[in-house]
Simulated assay, not measured.
Amino acid sequence: MKGLHLTADLYRCRCEPAWLTDAARLGDWCLAAIASVGLVPVQHMFHTFPRTGDGPGRVSVTVLLAESHVCLHTWPQERSVTCDVFVCDVGGDLSAQARGLMTALVERFQPEWTEQRSLDRGEEA
């Protein structure tokens, strides 16, 4: 069950506002980014939450991978995003793919600053 879990909290994102509010647009882009690093999506859900008194609704994008999962959650009123990429080393080391995907996600949102973490999960067999 060895794997790599990457997280990033993105603040004051300078991307186009639609990337924070349009679940279908963000989800479709995310599927393409996943494929571009060689990971395999097997199921997905893209959801836009209702508008609130604070502004447009948040977006959640979740993609189940053959190798594990990717989750994104946006806070448009704060121009913030959380990103979660987890890959299990099924058939080999997938850390380069996970890191490549996280780089693409961060670049998509153009944050002023990020807080990123990396966690090695499980044990060697």
Rank of each mutant, 00 (worst) to 15 (best):
E123S: 11
G3I: 14
Q43C: 09
G91N: 03
T21V: 14
E67A: 02
G100I: 09
L10H: 06
G3S: 05
D120T: 09
T52K: 04
C13L: 00
V106K: 06
L26I: 00
R12D: 12
W29R: 15
D22W: 04
E78G: 00
C15T: 10
R58Q: 11
C13D: 08
E123M: 12
L101Q: 08
G122Y: 15
L119Y: 14
F86H: 14
V106T: 11
D84G: 04
L4H: 04
R121H: 04
S68M: 03
P56E: 14
R108H: 08
S95N: 07
L10F: 11
G27Y: 00
Q43N: 14
E123W: 07
L94F: 00
R25V: 00
F49I: 01
T21Q: 05
R99C: 09
T62D: 02
L119M: 11
D28W: 01
L6V: 05
Y11L: 00
V106Y: 02
G3M: 12
C13S: 12
S118Y: 01
C83I: 00
M45F: 05
L6E: 04
M1W: 13
A23S: 07
A104D: 05
Q110G: 03
V85W: 14
A32I: 06
L64D: 12
A104G: 08
Q77V: 00
Q116D: 12
V63F: 11
H44T: 06
S118A: 15
S68A: 15
A23G: 06
A8E: 12
K2V: 02
P50Y: 05
P111D: 14
E67M: 05
R99E: 13
